[in-house]
Write a protein that binds this DNA or RNA. Structure first.
Lengths: 206, 206
DNA sequence: CACTGGATTGACTCGTCAGTCAACCGCGGC
DNA sequence: GCCGCGGTTGACTGACGAGTCAATCCAGTG
């Protein structure tokens, strides 16, 4: 029945609680009971909605990652938006995702993205899709530079991920200004490079 | 006594075995007995040399990371080596570290670098030192480009780490040619950027 | 009201390990 | 020949925590 909606969606409650708990204590260092407690729900209910602790993490990752993949695809599709601006949009989306829900992004990056071997190949596949999405944006004539788009995509994504990692571990200050500035900096670096415009190289250079 | 050296250094044996086991099964999914078995040593001996499972991981990380920090510092110090070449040397060192001992690098990246919150602040500090070391290389007049060297260092390191991650998870082919090519690609991208030389290309003149 | 079935509860089970410890081995010294 | 001692052994323990399950609750139905 459509009317059968409970006042609160306990499943959602559990997922949200899990994000907080996983972010705070780490996936391996927390108990399922911590999640249940945080959600204000009985231990057993967790297993009513999820078959295992790992499936919770799984769900969190896939849910959020898919949103990002869709966003990348949508940005890619925009007509008459220069490639560089598309990259900015992607960077912006990811950074804003972190700003909007740092705990979730922390869990995804720290517990899933790097631990992809513990999990099934599903995650690997999904992560590769992100590379592909960004790579597709880069397959643009105006951007031919001898760098295969496949690699360019990895470097771009890697740079952004390192930024998030910096915020996650408190190495970088997480203020609104910093977020905005960082978006520009990644895109500037990846698009324009660190070296000032290729004039005749000064000093020693063959 | 100096003469009291056993034929084989069991401590080293345990560390090397741990690298293989941690790489194969993951730190959290393996037992201490797996490490002991792999080393061909009794379970208890592991606790003779290390106070906990985590201390083994700890030791592996610090040992190797320090070598990298020293290498970066040494490269930084080299006189009359252009900044770009220094970056190449750093990239080369890290990539070769992976080529030489992929298991160890996998453990360091997957189990330590990203999981730095589970551990003490020691690791954070050490990781930051790497950023600083690279950042210092970039504090070079010929490289002023509006990108703070602090960020530039993160992007550079992030790009390389993403490369390693690709090899670790089998997303990229790990052949000697690929390793060499990748070194060039990261440095080219980070130094020159993806976009071909700015508008009125000064390439012709000069 | 009696009945059905999904939602919810939380005490309990049961395997798994990290870490302990008492004994053992073998070499160098005396 | 015997002692001392660090290196070495592996059976054992104690805690912990994932996952189970039988019972209970409650909303809708006839």
């Amino acid at each position: 029945m459509a009317a059968r909606q409970p006042a609160v969606d306990k499943r959602r409650l559990i997922l949200d609680a899990a994000v907080r708990v996983f972010a705070r204590r780490g996936f391996h260092h927390c108990r399922v009971s911590d999640v249940a407690d945080e959600a204000g729900v009985a231990y057993g209910l967790v297993y009513h909605y999820f078959s295992s602790k790992e499936e919770i993490l799984n769900t969190l990752f896939l849910e959020r990652w898919q949103i990002m993949l869709d966003a990348i695809a949508e940005i890619d599709q925009r007509e008459n938006l220069p490639t560089r601006d598309k990259l900015y949009e992607v960077a912006s989306f990811i950074v804003d995702s972190y700003r909007h829900d740092p705990d979730l992004m922390k869990v995804i990056i720290v517990e899933v993205t790097r631990a992809a071997n513990s999990f099934g190949q599903v995650h690997l596949e999904k992560i590769r899709e992100a590379y592909d999405g960004i790579g597709h944006i880069l397959e643009d004539n105006s951007f031919k530079s001898g760098i295969p788009s496949e690699f360019a995509a990895m470097f771009f994504y890697g740079a952004i991920e390192q930024l998030l990692t910096g915020w996650i571990f408190g190495v970088l200050p997480g203020t609104d200004e910093e977020y905005e500035r960082s978006k520009d900096l990644v895109v500037d670096t990846i698009c324009g490079g660190l070296q000032p415009a290729r004039a005749s190289s000064p000093a020693a250079s063959g």
